[in-house]
């Protein structure tokens, strides 16, 4: 059986988990087994409707104390749940919480793990998973050699797929260990779309000349419903906050559309964005290396091109 970990925040199931369900359902079909989910805590979503992503059964540990993420507690509960349900493959989203617990659950289950998988495993001769390595500069095909297997999948690489069907929900009783952390403050940036969850990202570099010019980036992001990001020199100069820094040593993103404005495209920046489906580069330097990694490009002055592009998109959406 394929057991999919369904991650929640603020009592809502995360988009990355819907993708994990779609992936787990396709994998279960490939292996000829059932696709089942495990949810910790209470959520406001309609659980039976998770069937439309391909989930056949949901094991629900509906204890409200699990609404706050705690890596040690979640590791133990998921390990016990995997044993109780006899899971042979566990699927996680390679999101912030998945990164924290999937490897720990794997060692507790004596399972091999591949994190950041890009596609369904090849099960014709073994169990071989392809993942991105060297920060997006290469792929590795890795075989998991243990009876139980754990996979976490890269966000936006598989997509959310719709099916017919409903999920049967079953309460699962698992002893919950004492909390190992105490959350003392939560700070959310209002109204901003989280970078790693965004479908579209608009990113600015040194070509914008200063933080006072970010309005044109924000305007474009707004009409597209996009998140904003920046290159490393920009966050290092404190033009923009560090959490917007996209690149090898910052946030790695894989949106459907990445629009880079005034960013030359150093190899370290490319490593953070090269899994994007479509890349648009706007730069006044026709020699900017970013054009070699782009799908579409405009050689021109950002201060003229961006307002025009924003207006054109607004017009096309009207």
């Amino acid at each position: 059986m394929v057991l999919i970990y369904i991650d929640q925040a603020d009592q809502q199931i995360k988009k990355s988990s819907l993708e994990a369900i779609s992936y787990g359902a396709a994998l279960a079909k490939q292996l000829g087994v059932t696709a089942e989910g495990i949810l910790l805590g209470t959520v406001t979503d309609d659980l039976a409707s998770l069937g439309k992503y391909g989930l056949q059964k949901l094991h629900h540990v509906g204890d409200a104390s699990l609404n706050h993420f705690d890596a040690k507690v979640f590791t133990q509960v998921l390990t016990d749940a995997a044993k109780a349900t006899n899971a042979s493959v566990l699927v996680f989203a390679h999101n912030l919480n998945g990164k924290a617990i999937a490897p720990a659950v794997a060692v507790k289950l004596h399972a091999g793990i591949v994190t950041g998988a890009n596609s369904l495993p090849d099960t014709s001769n073994g169990f071989t998973v392809t993942k991105t390595v060297f920060s997006g500069k290469a792929f590795a095909e890795i075989n998991i050699d243990t009876p139980i297997k754990v996979i976490s999948i890269n966000q936006n690489c598989f997509g959310v797929h719709m099916h017919e069907g409903a999920t049967s929900v079953e309460a699962l009783s698992i002893a919950i260990p004492a909390a190992s952390i105490k959350v003392t403050a939560t700070h959310k940036v209002d109204g901003e779309i989280p970078l790693t969850e965004a479908n579209i990202v608009v990113s600015g570099g040194r070509g914008l000349k200063g933080p006072e010019n970010w309005g044109i980036i924000e305007d474009l992001a707004k009409v597209l419903g996009a998140a904003t990001a920046c290159s490393r020199p920009v966050s290092d100069s404190d033009w923009r906050p560090h959490h917007e820094h996209v690149g090898q040593t910052g946030v790695q993103v894989a949106p459907n559309l990445y629009i880079a404005v005034g960013i030359s495209g150093a190899i370290q920046h490319l490593a953070g964005v090269n899994r994007s489906k479509t890349i648009v580069v706007i730069n006044k330097d026709p020699e900017a290396p970013f054009f070699k990694a782009a799908d579409y490009g405009i050689v021109g002055d950002a201060f003229e091109v961006l307002p025009a592009l924003t207006a054109a998109i607004q017009k096309s959406k009207a």
Partner: peptide, 26 residues
Amino acid sequence: ATTSIKTYDLPPAKSGVKLVAADNVD
């Protein structure tokens, strides 16, 4: 060991950028 690397691959090269004129954002 619990896993073994079978092979590595380099990503396929981008087919080439399509340039659009700066005054033709439509």
